[in-house]
């Protein structure tokens, strides 16, 4: 009975892990399945085979960065971007990351699993007499196009069936669980195109027309949070020239250069509020008097209310840089106590 219960749990967990794969993980897998698999399933021209530990070991020692570079720019028999010029460097990263994951899973499963006989993928049925590739999970069960692709590339690979590497579907979450900060978005989830961002309907024809954030942000200054764009710096450096008036492109804001220092309780550095950066974007009436009474000491501000979306939190934590950037506001160190 206990074993039975364990089976129930295993299947539920593994299945869930598979389904929770993020859009980026999916994309990496999709690229590997449709582009990379053409050579990396069969090992064409000594391409390291998907999930093959021995093929990958010497390459892994160069580090993932080097692998991404080689995949992106080409290396020996490896054509730039795997021969598909429409892929971006970011796509290549996702694909390499997915391939790393396959190797990692092989290492884990080769230690625990007993060898299973290689399956019969669709590709093998169409090409009788050819050995079934070990990485059948990658080649099998895909669209007919993928299978056909696998058939073509398997012909030169007349090697005997390599040792069966069991490719289990490991959870992307499990790899992320010990990452530095689980609240921060991993690189592959940043600035996704609208159709993949989880709130746009990918079946809507208009979604395809919308600009991709990455494209718009490529020339802007980078930041570590929010849109990953430093909007204030981008505005200051004229990387963007947003209008201050609906109709008149030449109208300039009235910038007030006045810092307000707020002493705060506890050990956090004091807050310096710069009117300058705010008046570049906003009108006085946006904040005064509804949100902040324009009088020193008249506003009782707390992080609790900011987190609740009030006071500074009306913008910060919604559209202006988020509250995770503590030191952008708490920027004035307190004098050391004697």
């Amino acid at each position: 009975m206990t074993e039975y219960m364990r089976n129930v749990l295993w299947v539920a967990l593994l299945g869930l892990a598979g389904f929770q794969a993020s859009a980026a993980e999916e994309k990496g897998k999709q690229i590997v399945d449709t582009v990379c698999a053409a050579c990396h399933v069969a090992g064409v021209l000594n391409a390291p085979k998907l999930g093959d530990i021995q093929d990958w070991m010497p390459r892994l020692q160069q580090g993932e960065e080097a692998l991404i570079k080689h995949a992106d720019e080409g290396f020996n028999a490896m054509p730039p971007k795997g021969g598909n010029a429409s892929l971006s460097t970011e796509d290549i990263k996702l694909a390499v990351h997915h391939m790393m994951g396959l190797v990692g899973e092989s290492i884990v499963s080769s230690k625990s699993a007993t060898p299973t006989p290689p399956g019969k993928p669709a590709a093998a049925e169409k090409a009788p007499g050819k050995p079934a590739p070990a990485s059948d999970k990658v080649a099998a069960g895909k669209s007919p196009v993928d299978s056909a692709r696998s058939v073509v590339v398997e012909k030169p690979a007349a090697r005997p069936a390599p040792k069966p590497a069991v490719i289990a579907k490991a959870s992307p979450e499990s790899r992320r669980v010990n990452s530095f900060n689980r609240l921060l978005r991993p690189a592959e989830q940043r600035n996704l195109p609208p159709a993949k961002d989880g709130i746009h309907d990918a079946e809507n024809d208009g979604t395809e027309v919308l600009q991709h954030p990455k494209e718009a942000f490529s020339s802007l200054d980078k930041a570590n949070s929010g849109n990953r764009v430093d909007w204030v710096k981008s505005l200051g450096g004229d990387k963007i020239t947003p209008r201050y008036d609906l109709l008149d492109p030449d109208k300039r804001p009235m910038v007030l250069d006045l810092n307000i220092v707020r002493e705060v309780k506890g050990s956090m550095p004091d807050v310096v509020y710069p009117h300058k950066q705010h008046t570049e974007w906003l009108d006085c009436s946006n904040c005064h008097p509804a949100i902040f009474i324009p009088k020193k000491g008249a506003n009782n501000i707390s992080m609790a209310s900011i987190l609740m979306g009030e006071q500074c939190g009306v913008c910060h934590g919604k559209v202006a840089f988020p509250v995770a950037e503590c030191r952008k506001c708490h920027s004035k160190n307190k004098p050391m106590k004697k």
Binding site: L210, Y244, W281, L282, S285, N286
Partner: peptide
């Protein structure tokens, strides 16, 4: 869906939120 980032590139906050 209103993409704030797209509009920030073209207009300052004041245009929509004050005017």
């Amino acid at each position: 869906i209103f993409p704030h980032w797209f509009h920030r590139i073209r207009f300052r906050c004041k245009v929509c939120h004050a005017d």
